[in-house]
């Protein structure tokens, strides 16, 4: 009997993450939406823990819950300086809702007809040390994508600084 995921913990975390996403969409205040996003990201990190992906849970907390939310709040602080600017109408869109519903039902049909190759969860998973060994293995490892990722981050950093610097004159 393979290990499976605890349904109660999954239900709580799924409710928290969907609730966070709905909170982002239903917040009038942009700052509140940022905090709802933070809550959804923490809930997804908990889901990663349920899936025994401890490293990814940590990265999720650091990158999304830490960096991205703080960056969003900084931009809100810099651009929407008065309180009235940050509070805005909800922007309901019927065509957007129809698009999202169609997309969601299409994905649902895909999942319902998708035969996942392994139905039973393997009981043992490699730990973080094994993850690092596979990442940097010389044959069949992920060294080249890793280097490209660092290049992407460098280019993004330079580009962000370039775009956000003050114009001369």
């Amino acid at each position: 009997m393979g290990e499976t995921v605890n349904g109660v913990a999954f239900a709580i975390l799924a409710f928290a993450s969907i609730g966070g996403a709905v909170g982002v969409l239903a917040s009038r205040n942009v700052v509140h939406a940022g905090f709802w996003l933070l809550e959804a990201m923490v809930a997804v990190a908990g889901l990663y823990l349920l899936l025994s992906a401890e490293f990814l849970a940590l990265v999720q907390l650091l990158v999304y819950a830490g960096a991205v939310s703080v960056l969003l709040l900084f931009v809100v602080m810099l651009t929407l300086r008065r309180r009235e600017d940050a509070v805005r109408p909800l922007d309901w869109s019927l065509s957007g809702a129809v698009l999202a519903l169609l997309f969601g039902s299409m994905i649902y049909l895909g999942i319902a007809n998708f035969d996942i190759p392994v139905a039973e969860m393997p009981s043992t998973v490699p730990d973080i040390a094994a993850l690092g060994e596979i990442l940097f293995a010389l044959d069949g490892g992920w060294v080249l994508p890793f280097e490209i990722a660092s290049l992407v981050l460098l280019v993004a950093l330079v580009g962000a600084v370039w775009w956000s610097k003050e114009d001369e004159k």
Binding site: L25, V30, L80, D91, G96, L99, F103
Partner: peptide, 18 residues
């Protein structure tokens, strides 16, 4: 799928870039 649909709805309906 639910999370993606919610995000898709927000991306096409919201009028604030943030």
């Amino acid at each position: 799928a639910v999370l993606f649909s919610l995000g898709l709805y927000g991306a096409v309906s919201k009028k604030s870039a943030v």
